[in-house]
């Protein structure tokens, strides 16, 4: 993998730090009038998801990370791996539980997810921003109060639990924002 000089740093560049592939979030060059120039950089560690700040002497070289992002459709889970497919080449990729992480509860068959691959192996799965899922469990007794403020918890077919308005019932399909985990609307079947 190529090395990058600090002069090439910019948002989105993938570099290796502490043995982990990282993505540059923010890069600021600092040049004191009489002193060593350096770069203050915010990076996201792509495996742990942590954002940390690092400092590099200007002109220093940093190892690049072999990271690519692919748009793949979710197929199925075989109990150990989650399988995804490129809809154009039909090539398949299997991600383990570590890579799928929190995304597991938002995976809907045929939905296109963003997979991050490091040296060919999936390290992160990002679900679409909005998914549609069926409610399998929620308290039916709380019917009628359309002006309800707090809502009630509802379990979805994938196991995710979201707060929904009181009028929403078992068997209905709802739209959820996966970034916040919040209910958006009911979906007409």
């Amino acid at each position: 993998m190529a090395n990058y000089s600090t002069n090439e740093f910019k948002g989105g560049l993938k570099i290796m730090q502490d043995g982990e592939p990282c993505s540059i979030v923010e890069n600021e060059m600092v040049k004191p009038g009489k002193g060593q120039a350096f770069n203050r950089v915010k990076i996201r560690k792509l495996i742990s998801g942590k954002v940390v700040e690092k400092t590099f002497k200007s002109g220093e070289s940093v190892e690049g990370a072999d990271v690519i992002e692919l748009e793949l459709a979710y197929l199925y889970n075989d109990g150990e791996f989650w399988h995804f497919m490129n809809n154009e080449t039909f090539e398949q990729v299997a991600a383990d539980a570590k890579a799928v992480g929190e995304a597991e509860k938002w995976l809907v068959e045929q939905d296109v997810c963003t997979l991050t691959l490091w040296e060919g192996n999936p390290i992160n799965v990002q679900p679409p921003n909005f998914v549609e899922l069926e409610i399998t469990e929620t308290d039916p007794g709380l019917k009628g109060d359309t002006a309800g403020t707090g809502g009630k918890p509802a379990t979805l077919i994938t196991g995710a639990v979201v707060r929904v308005p009181l009028f929403v019932q078992i068997g209905e399909v709802i739209k959820v924002d996966t970034r916040s985990g919040e209910y958006v609307s009911r979906v007409q079947k």
Partner: peptide, 8 residues
């Protein structure tokens, strides 16, 4: 001959 920055 310096890189560009927010203040430079």
């Amino acid at each position: 001959d310096d890189p560009t920055g927010r203040h430079h």
